[in-house]
Design a protein around this nucleic acid. Structure first.
Lengths: 190, 190
DNA sequence: AGATAAACGGGGTGGTACCCCGTTTAGTCA
DNA sequence: TGACTAAACGGGGTACCACCCCGTTTATCT
């Protein structure tokens, strides 16, 4: 059992209901889905939603935490691919995920307002940091293997993924095409 | 004098006031600035704003029409640069413009709802088409010169510019860096 | 000047985010 | 077990927003 965890049984149950309702409505209507409607669908008062998630950003982070965790584990699990392909694949997959899940992009963008809502325990970190850290591992590996252009940072790629994923909402096929384009450049090499 | 133009003198004056107020507030608060507040600053009722611009999208288009026109003329005026540099430069400049002018990106993205609001006369076309057409000229020229990777379309680049510009609002320096990155790819060539 | 249609805007509707504060309920301890 | 206490809840209020109806004002033309 973790050291710090205080949340009453009904609180935990209602938090889960809110997250489920939020995930569903966000899938349908995007990241700007009505918070009132989410609370309504969860069968709870809107005040309860605001108590659990003090901002839209906090709610989005919580909704996507699980998916982001899977993406990161997926990255770590890649066996013997070469560093360039490894990086490219993960960047492409993650961008497609952002495109498919309207809202994650916004979750990543927004001012990462001071963590402290009572929906977050101390040992959790925000999804942005989680993704950025994972990406940095891949970037470092590629750089070390000499297959990364000088000056390219993890932060650059993060912004790029976010940009493309957000701009191609609900069209992950296009997102993948654009990512590949951006990774290889628009001009032929020789 | 153009053939088609019917708008009463007060209508024309108020339309200009609305555009000026909109440009100012959008510069301050971004594309989601309150329409009520824009009308208020223009000294007009909100109904008047909605009559001139039936949607936020229509208003944004009108606000940025002039700037877009300049970008397009700038593209046509480039003298003897080689097609690759010509394309790259324009794409970079335009993306920086989108980043600097919060709202233009959204104007480009949104469902280009059927033109027909009384704020548009028949001979005007939407800014998206204007930019896309200009870009296509540069793309064709580059493709003809053999300096464009096969399969790259104007639409691809348009989406990419939009994505990067929107994701780096108010930070055109980063926008330029990311565009250059995307144009040349993240891996070294040989 | 008078007619007529264009343009205006006060004010209504229905929606949203966010929060106060009295009420309910889970957890605890004798 | 029952009583106590703090956690959690939610009805309802405030303030804002987009959007529109419809009676009033005003430009334009003859």
């Amino acid at each position: 059992m973790p050291a710090v965890k205080t949340l009453r049984a009904d609180g935990r149950r209602n938090r889960a209901r809110l997250l489920a309702a939020a995930a569903e409505l966000i899938r349908q209507e995007g990241a700007q889905a009505s918070l009132e409607e989410i609370a309504r669908r969860a069968g709870l008062g809107s005040a309860t939603l605001h108590r659990h998630f003090p901002s839209r950003h906090a709610l989005l982070e919580a909704v996507y935490r699980e998916g982001v965790e899977q993406l990161c584990e997926h990255a770590a699990a890649q066996p013997g691919l070469d560093p360039a392909a490894e990086l490219d694949t993960w960047v492409e997959d993650t961008t497609a995920y952002i495109a498919d899940n309207r809202g994650l992009g916004i979750a990543l963008l927004g001012s990462s307002d001071t963590v402290g809502g009572d929906g977050l325990t101390a040992d959790e970190i925000c999804v942005t940091d989680r993704l950025t850290d994972e990406l940095q591992v891949l970037v470092d590996r590629a750089a070390h293997a000499g297959v990364l252009r000088a000056g390219v940072t993890g932060s650059d790629l993060m912004t790029l993924m976010n940009a493309i994923g957000t701009a191609t909402e609900k069209d992950s096929a296009t997102a993948r095409r654009l990512v590949r384009l951006a990774l290889t450049g628009i001009h032929p090499c020789p």
